[in-house]
Each structure stands twice: as structure tokens, then as C-alpha cells.
Amino acid sequence: MIAQNIGFLIIAIVMIGAALRVVTTNNVVHAALWLVVVLAGAAAQYILLAAEFVAVTQVLVYIGAVMVLFLFGTMLTRARIGAESDLNNSYKKLGIPVGLIMLAAMGLALTDSFGDEKLPESAKVVSTQEVSDQIFGPYLLPFWALSFVLLAAVVGAIVLARKD
């Protein structure tokens, strides 16, 4: 339990620092690379939460595929790779109170509702078989809908990006 808490703390601090760099850095490529740190930290937290299949999917889909998409998007929309000065808009100062007020509201609600409730100590890792039993059992219809969403997204992305 102690080891898990220490691991959680280290990963959480790294994630928060990297997320702050994503939203403040002046370099789009650096933002993408800091986002990799956030996504990898999230995968580690999923493992701490006994969700191994979701963690593996996170690594494959986010770090593998989505990051390549982001780097390609950066490459295709900007000729320059170095730092840029005009990445933030004029409402930048407004964002800080918005974020802090939301954080205060959510923090108050969470400490009020859950206090010092603990997660079950003897939780076993949720196996891939249980997850697939859920997906192909009660959640089959949403799975089909998701297949159509992905198909539409693939066709739509090709149609949008095609040169005609």
C-alpha cells in the first residue's frame, strides 16, 4: 500500500507538471512530446487502478496512433519547427481564474462527498476476459455504434484532407 501511494504521488506530480508544460510551452512539437508524458502517466495510473487492458490500449492508441497524428498535423500545418510567440490568444489571463474556480468547486465537492473513503484493499486485476464479456454482452449495441463512428471518422478524414 505504501509503495502504491509513493508511486501514485510521483506519477501524479510528473503528470501535472507535464500537463502544465503542454498548455504553456511556446513550441508545438514540445507540447506534443510533453503530452506523451501525460498520456504515459495516465497509463501508469490505470495500472494502479487495476485496469491492465485499458492501460495497454492507452499506450497503443494514444501514444502510438494519436501522437503520430498530432505530429503529422503539426508538420503539415506549419513550416517552422522552432518556438513561436503567438500561440496564446488575448483571453489568456481569463483562463487562469476560470481554471482555478473550477478546481476549487470540484475540490470542495469531492472532499465533501468522498472525504477519506478508501479504495478496496484486495482488489484483483480486471482481466481482459471480463472486459470483453462486458463489451460483447450487455454493451454490444454501443460497440456497433462505435464501429460506425470510427468508419464515418475514417471516411470523413479522408474526404476532408483530400486534394481535389
Binding site: 503528470m15 503542454v22 498548455v23 481569463l94 487562469i96 473513503e117
Partner: peptide
């Protein structure tokens, strides 16, 4: 492990993301 430590981590990341959506152009 507390329930709240994960939920608060989620809340902090959510707020950082909201700041990013507001501040970036």
C-alpha cells in the same frame, strides 16, 4: 489508497485542460 487522490488528480488535469482550451489559439 484513497478514492479522493485519484479523483482530485482527475480534477486538476481537467482544469489544466480547460485552461489550455481557453488560453490557446
Amino acid at each position: 489508497m484513497f478514492v479522493n487522490q485519484f479523483l482530485l488528480l482527475g480534477a486538476i488535469l481537467f482544469c489544466i485542460g480547460v485552461y489550455g482550451v481557453v488560453a490557446r489559439k
